Simulated scan of single mutants.
Amino acid sequence: MTRTSRLMILLVAVLLLGAAGTGAVLHAANRSGERNQEQAGGAPVRTGTVSLRPDGGRRLLVRNLAWGPHRDEIASVPAGRPDGPRTVSGVKCLRFHAAAGTGICLQARHGALEDTYRAVVLDADLREVRHYPVAGIPTRARVSPSGHLVAWTVFVSGDSYAGTAFSTRTSLADARTGAIDDNLETFSVVKDGRPYHASDINIWGVTFADDSRFYATLATAGQTYLVQGDPAARTLTTLHRNVECPSLSPDGSRIAYKKRVPGAPADAPWRLYVLDLHDMTETATAERRDVDDQALWADGSTLVYALPGDYGSDLWTVPANGTGAPRRLMRSAVAPAYLG
């Protein structure tokens, strides 16, 4: 064997060993990243296709809060396996909801001097249909059962409902035409059966019955009210006191909401209740902790809501009829929406 041949063999061996070593390092780093991601937020996360179209099974979509490159992306899991691997979409939202192939995504756009926010209407493939600038920090979002209407609430000033030094702006838009009512405070208010006018009115937390009727919270003079809204007539009618962030049951008969309770701390004043719309009776759920969220009905008997967690928020469930006990549904997630 010539000297040149021996040098060539040595060079090839060095290159092969280097490639093997690099591969081993990358594989170890990859596995370490996967382990770290699991430790820093729960279930494994994988990229893939996330759609709002029916796929033959019930799914739960959430904003993923697990630390890593996919934090804040909308993720999908089978509804029956909320602790399973999450398929992430690449679409980042601060607040999200979806129904009937339409999504609403409230996003932050980070600038050199300040952040701005926008509401983005998404189609069934999570592609942008249109967007609207919003005046503050996103806090609530909902889509009507038909997918035709979307609504969102932002903080124009302040960043918490707990005190009184905040102002909200709630908007309602037609996902098909793009027409928008930018501020529901311009609707006519009927309070206790009479027309009502005040400069301190705040509206937040829309939940839809259908395309002709919704519910929301109205605050004025230090009180909050459940109101029924008529988008065509542009009216809001008060129904019940001390109701915030309402969520209508699938059969339209009950409202889940957060209620201020006597004796609770000023910065944690709420408990989760359910209101029967037929006779206005209230039922306290078994969740005794402070719930600052717009709960979601997982089905006709179970509520899903967010509570603070190690990486932002975890999702919890509790029966709507006051029985049972709370249980954690999903770590490192917020803004749930059930599809299918």
Results as ranks from 00 to 15, higher is better:
residue 51 S to Q: 05
residue 101 G to P: 03
residue 8 M to I: 12
residue 305 Y to C: 04
residue 317 T to R: 13
residue 154 V to T: 15
residue 196 Y to P: 02
residue 147 G to K: 08
residue 230 D to L: 00
residue 257 Y to V: 03
residue 1 M to E: 09
residue 311 Y to R: 14
residue 243 V to A: 05
residue 213 R to C: 04
residue 273 Y to H: 15
residue 198 A to L: 05
residue 300 G to Y: 04
residue 74 I to A: 07
residue 71 R to Y: 01
residue 37 Q to N: 13
residue 213 R to G: 02
residue 257 Y to I: 01
residue 214 F to S: 01
residue 296 L to A: 11
residue 247 S to K: 02
residue 149 L to D: 05
residue 16 L to K: 00
residue 185 E to D: 05
residue 322 G to D: 02
residue 254 R to A: 05
residue 78 P to V: 12
residue 283 T to G: 04
residue 70 H to N: 14
residue 89 S to Y: 10
residue 5 S to E: 13
residue 125 D to W: 00
residue 292 D to T: 05
residue 9 I to G: 00
residue 337 A to L: 01
residue 40 A to I: 00
residue 327 R to A: 14
residue 97 H to G: 10
residue 102 T to C: 07
residue 145 P to V: 08
residue 14 V to S: 11
residue 292 D to H: 11
residue 26 L to E: 09
residue 183 N to C: 07
residue 96 F to N: 08
residue 184 L to E: 13
residue 112 A to M: 06
residue 135 A to W: 02
residue 62 V to T: 15
residue 130 R to P: 01
residue 308 P to E: 12
residue 119 A to T: 09
residue 264 A to Q: 14
residue 285 T to S: 14
residue 203 I to F: 07
residue 219 A to E: 15
residue 228 Q to C: 03
residue 315 L to W: 01
residue 79 A to Q: 06
residue 85 P to S: 13
residue 198 A to N: 10
residue 300 G to R: 08
residue 275 L to A: 05
residue 54 P to F: 12
residue 67 W to P: 00
residue 278 H to Q: 11
residue 143 V to A: 01
residue 127 R to A: 15
residue 137 I to N: 10
residue 29 A to N: 13
residue 124 A to F: 02
residue 221 A to N: 14
residue 177 T to C: 03
residue 4 T to K: 12
residue 120 V to R: 05
residue 159 D to E: 12
residue 162 A to Y: 07
residue 333 A to V: 01
residue 249 S to G: 08
residue 116 T to P: 02
residue 276 D to L: 01
residue 250 P to E: 13
residue 32 S to N: 10
residue 262 P to N: 13
residue 122 L to M: 15
residue 245 C to D: 14
residue 297 W to V: 07
residue 22 T to D: 04
residue 201 I to K: 08
residue 46 R to T: 11
residue 129 V to I: 14
residue 305 Y to E: 08
residue 237 T to E: 15
residue 263 G to R: 09
residue 169 R to H: 07
residue 1 M to R: 13
